[in-house]
Design a binder for these strands. Sequence first.
DNA 1: GTCTATAGAGCGATAGAC
DNA 2: GTCTATCGCTCTATAGAC
Lengths: 227, 227
Amino acid sequence: MNESQPTATADRILDVAEEMFAEQGYRGVSVRSITLACGANIAAVHYHFGSKQVLLEEIFARRSGAINAARLALLAQCADQPGRAPLLEQILEAYLRPSFAQPSGDKGAKRFMRLRSVVAHEQAELSKNLIARHFNATSHRFLEAIAAATPHLALEDVCWRFHFLLGAHYYTLSNPGRIQALSGDQCDPADLEAALAEMIAFAAAGFRALPCDRSQMSFAPSSAQSA
Amino acid sequence: MNESQPTATADRILDVAEEMFAEQGYRGVSVRSITLACGANIAAVHYHFGSKQVLLEEIFARRSGAINAARLALLAQCADQPGRAPLLEQILEAYLRPSFAQPSGDKGAKRFMRLRSVVAHEQAELSKNLIARHFNATSHRFLEAIAAATPHLALEDVCWRFHFLLGAHYYTLSNPGRIQALSGDQCDPADLEAALAEMIAFAAAGFRALPCDRSQMSFAPSSAQSA
DNA sequence: GTCTATAGAGCGATAGAC
DNA sequence: GTCTATCGCTCTATAGAC
């Protein structure tokens, strides 16, 4: 009857910890409060995982596999064919959609995005290692695909713009309240399909822009424009 | 000789705390370590500020005034004239440049950007209040200016795209290491003029894009594209 | 205004009974 | 595998001498 839950307690801890870390930060959530919230004993985290940090690493490992697999599966379906969206838009959707929501309808992917953002700020060194271990390979696959679709850009430009996309992506899924405050509640951050469509349109246009020209700056300090 | 430093200790605490909070997080830095790092007594923070949180609020108050003033001064200089960059690019530069570096050459503006990002994740509620108090008015001025320069967009689209710009902006100044890892050290995050030029080109193109069309999605779950 | 000393609370982690 | 009890540590904040 319960052969499908050999370590039900460990799974419950992973679920609850992911949610609490994402919403209250890593340092802001104690091992005590995690076990209390999921009905386990205070010592359960250290029994199942060994330490608070290993628990965090297990959360990363569990999520990243599914997201990477979904991204690469969609990337494999991208094709420059008549009647479909332009290839660049397809690639961007293949990259972004799995971190908005999994096909199963699980909303945890979005929460995990906020968790990554939280950890990047609170545990910079650990975050660098985890992101590199779990996401570098897939990110580079997409960087290459985008570079191939934007032959007018030097690789350096592609990297900067992909970096900006990452920032917009993290911020949108991590700070859903900010756009409500900015727009006077006209934008609904819970409408993930709208956010995704807006982000793809914005980023695709950004990637298509001509390489920037630094001499076109209006207020550079050396040109003594103002003071 | 020292009439210019009536509260030298408080100023030193503000400087050191801003740097330590930005690099190690708010919860990750103790009042003890701040006072130790700036040679003050352990009790100095509570004598001068009353609490750790008020110290953080004073850091916000001190920086935000200068940044807002610089932004609005540059915005007032923006004009759609031949021989200058397009108006949209001018507005974006007026918004972004003061948070990359102040005219005085002070690098603290960039550090303060990372501090805001850190606090947004660790102290979500406090951050919301501080950001609204110090930045909402100026941000709305720029939202209006951008909206006027992009008459093809609904206000909702302008808000989403401004939100994406905020995300790219925060991420670039908060996670300088990520673009080095992504680009194989081809992009130099310390070259702030390059980052600024790239960001303006990317965002300006994004704002100029046509409104997005949600029916153009390639992998929406309801269309049963894959599984 | 600067210092020492400490209160009072919460933390991660562990030992050892069951 | 689950529990209680507790160790040893760090934290913010404060009291009170100088």
